[in-house]
């Protein structure tokens, strides 16, 4: 037998640790997209006093290395403070797995990104963002890059669904290039709101559709 992965990767692939989701998570994130063939969702429980990650769960749509890195990243992060967990690199994840084929390294990046995004989500929700960066049009667009366009399976910025973005006095306005009665209009709208409402200086979000 000559499998394309080493034994550690295969072990995590076969028996991934910390699988599933957490009800009412303290922090959560979803990175990747079906178009790329890779997605990771990550859920956190954080002790508010110690800031230690007490529970962490993930879900994966993707290839073996995607599943294995999701599994290892949860193992690496569990029991660490959010500050420590933020510093985990894709190299550490890949090393902990005994190395990944170079063509698959992007999968370990995805897992690390989802961990950082989940921690950031926690920090935003709990007012822990210390450097309060002002929300600009650029910040909004960056956030919207994590909202999927289900028509294409790619994010809504790349697929040109975002027609206009403006931010003024904490009021965000977004124009989406879709008819309002489109099959996916509501799903996209609520997904976009969820990605933006946690920003510290955002007071109001208005989303309209072009038709």
């Amino acid at each position: 037998m000559s499998f394309p992965y080493n034994d550690i990767v295969l072990e995590h692939f076969k028996n991934p640790r910390n699988i599933g989701s957490i009800e009412n998570p303290d922090g959560k994130a979803m990175e990747g997209s079906p178009a790329c063939g890779d997605m990771v969702s990550l859920y956190l429980k954080v002790d508010p006093k110690t800031l230690i990650i007490t529970d962490i769960k993930f879900e994966s749509y993707g290839c073996a290395s995607n599943i294995a890195t999701g599994s290892i990243i949860t193992e690496l992060a569990k029991g660490k403070t959010i500050g420590e967990a933020k510093k985990i690199t894709w190299k550490q994840a890949s090393d902990a797995l005994g190395g990944l084929p170079s063509i698959k390294v992007h999968c370990s990046v995805l897992a690390v990104e989802s961990l950082r995004a989940a921690i950031q989500n926690y920090e935003e929700k709990h007012g822990l963002i210390t450097e309060k960066v002002e929300t600009t049009e650029e910040v909004i667009r960056k956030r919207l890059k994590k909202v999927m366009n289900p028509i294409k399976g790619l994010d809504m910025v790349t697929t040109n669904l975002v027609k206009e973005v403006s931010v003024k006095d904490g009021i965000v306005h977004i124009s989406i290039d879709l008819p309002e009665n489109h099959q996916f209009a509501n799903a996209i709208k609520s997904d976009a709101i969820e990605k933006i409402e946690t920003l510290w200086d955002v007071k109001e979000i208005n989303i309209d559709f072009t038709e």
């Binding site: 499998f3 394309p4 992965y5 295969l10 692939f13 076969k14 790329c36 063939g37 890779d38 749509y61 993707g62 290839c63 073996a64 995607n66 599943i67 063509i103």
Partner: peptide, 29 residues
Amino acid sequence: FVEGESITLHLDMYDIAVSTGSACFSRSL
């Protein structure tokens, strides 16, 4: 809701060989 390379690798562990149209499986990604 599932990705082909994960399916083929699992099947491979049962000594079953099939192919998939997934990007992960193809040479060009």
